[in-house]
Design a protein around this nucleic acid. Structure first.
Length: 434
RNA sequence: GGAGAGAUGGCAGAGUGGUUUAAUGCGCACGCCUGGAAAGCGUGAAUACUCCAAAAGGGUAUCGGGGGUUCAAAUCCCCCUCUCUCCGCCA
């Protein structure tokens, strides 16, 4: 959520920054300014009346104490009338307040000034490239073919269990997935200073609202129902990313400044409805309804946010370097950025079988957009309450990392070499046909 | 799922309709005292919104959340959430 004071004081700047996203959100600014003015006018009026009522009520108390019932009756009549008017105005003010908040919650974050203008993914500049596309002496196979022949994944039976868009890892596939989770958590907690947490995989709607997934994108997530009771539907949602529970850990808290930065790292499965994305990458594991991910979340002082974001990108890059994968870092342009983000880097890993780069990580600085929504603050050493900046980054998404690994490490004989970093965990240097 | 108890400020804890400005204690900050400290004494200290050009200052709301009764609610009534104790069921 944007700061209403910034909208009030610098509406032109807000309109200009919103317009760079190309979604027409700047049109909402006038509506917000109007609602804000109405709200304050109403509030000022009703609060004056309340002050009067409180004063007279107190006088009634004194009169009652002195047994002057008749005088008290006169004053009661006045406060009764005031009360009716107050109730009416309160109702009107609450209505305006709700409309204002609903509008504000649907407004995306302002892109940071360092973010290049652009309309779509095609306008995203490549910041750097690491390594080179592996030169295979044979025609690379797709991960689908490799997974089937090596029996790493059973796509058919996964569909039998849960429909299309789900993965059943089997045998070495399951072991590889587990090894990757372990490898990532150990790296980020052991070398990058993150604290490991393991959150609930379902959360209430207020958490989705807190990070900006609700109310605007409510159709993309799985709502859970308890048993056969439809009244429980929508009280909990399957998390689309660990960011949702982890970023909300300290919601509605006031943290002491010395606790910052807080750096969390969590493994969770991620559940996504992918409504409207049907038919895209239906074959294989590139776009699925459930995938594993290790997520990084930082709660930081505003002035250190962009520095911390660069560090987080480096932490993600370290993963791909240790696994010996070719990747590139892309800076998302204004038109391609997520709703809550002020600046996002995508890290894309090369998948030889696909002949393309796959997004395995997205590292965003959401500034105070989310902390405002969840009312998360920190108290400075001088006693002032401020909104911290929130960062999140995948470190990394596993299904696609799995694809890149399988396709990169495939051998001419159809087997798979195991990258050195994973050999101690898998206790082998090669995965062959069973 | 059943029965009961509870939720008050940083923490503990009093407060069953009106001079309550939420007592008191602990903790915290500052000051006095001291060679320095402790003790003692004094002072201060929540959050949000809002009014005022700003500052100073004022107003409103907030005692888990929501609604109701009343001129007036931490206090009475209803609903919800969470915590604790016991029972049942369960990995």
């Amino acid at each position: 959520m944007l700061d209403i004071k910034v909208i009030r004081e610098r509406p032109d700047l807000v309109r200009q920054r919103l317009s760079t996203r190309g979604a027409g959100d700047e049109k909402q600014v006038d509506k917000i300014l109007d609602l804000d003015a109405q709200r304050r006018q109403k509030l000022s009026w009703v609060e004056t009346l309340k002050a009067r009522r409180n004063l007279v009520s107190k006088e009634i108390g004194v009169l009652m104490g002195q047994k002057k019932a008749a005088e008290a009756e006169v004053k009661k009549r006045e406060t009764r009338e005031l009360g009716d008017l107050i109730a009416q105005l309160d109702k009107e003010a609450a209505g305006i307040e709700v409309t204002l908040r609903e509008t504000m919650l649907r407004l995306p974050n302002l892109p940071h000034e360092s973010v290049p203008s652009g309309r779509s993914a095609e306008d995203n500049p490549v910041i750097r490239v690491h390594g080179e596309k592996p030169a295979l002496a044979f025609k690379p196979k797709s991960h689908v073919e490799l997974c089937e022949s090596l029996q790493l994944v059973d796509f058919g039976r996964a569909a039998k269990l849960a429909g299309s868009g789900f993965v059943l890892y089997t045998n070495w596939g399951a072991k590889l997935e587990r090894a990757l989770i372990h490898f990532l958590l150990e790296l980020h907690t052991g070398e990058h200073g993150y604290t490991e947490v393991s959150p609930p995989f379902m959360v209430g709607p207020q958490c989705l609202e807190g990070v900006g997934q609700f109310p605007k994108f409510a159709d993309q997530y799985y709502a859970v129902q308890e048993g056969l009771d439809p009244a429980t539907l929508g009280k909990l949602y399957l998390i689309p990313t660990a960011e949702t529970p982890v970023a909300n850990i300290h919601r509605e808290e006031i943290l002491p400044e010395r606790q910052l930065p807080i750096c969390y790292c969590a493994y969770t499965p991620c559940f996504r409805g992918e409504a409207g994305a049907a038919g895209v990458g239906t074959r294989g594991m590139i776009r699925v309804h459930q995938f594993d991910k290790v997520e990084l979340v930082k709660i930081v002082k505003p002035e250190t946010g962009y520095e911390e974001q660069e560090k987080m990108v480096a932490h993600v890059e370290r993963v791909l370097q240790l696994l010996g994968l070719h990747y590139r870092v892309v800076l998302l342009c204004t038109g391609d950025m997520g709703f809550a983000s002020a600046k996002t880097y995508d890290i894309e890993v090369w998948a030889p079988g696909q002949g393309s780069y796959l997004e395995v990580s997205s590292v965003s600085n959401c500034e105070d957009f989310q902390s405002r929504r969840m009312n998360l603050r920190f108290k400075t050493d001088s006693g002032e309450n401020k909104f911290p900046h929130l960062l999140n980054g995948s470190g990394t998404a596993l299904a696609r990392l799995f694809v890149a690994l399988v396709e990169t490490y495939q051998q001419a004989d159809g087997s798979l070499a195991v990258p050195p970093a994973l050999q101690p965990l898998l206790k082998t240097d090669r995965i062959s046909k069973p």
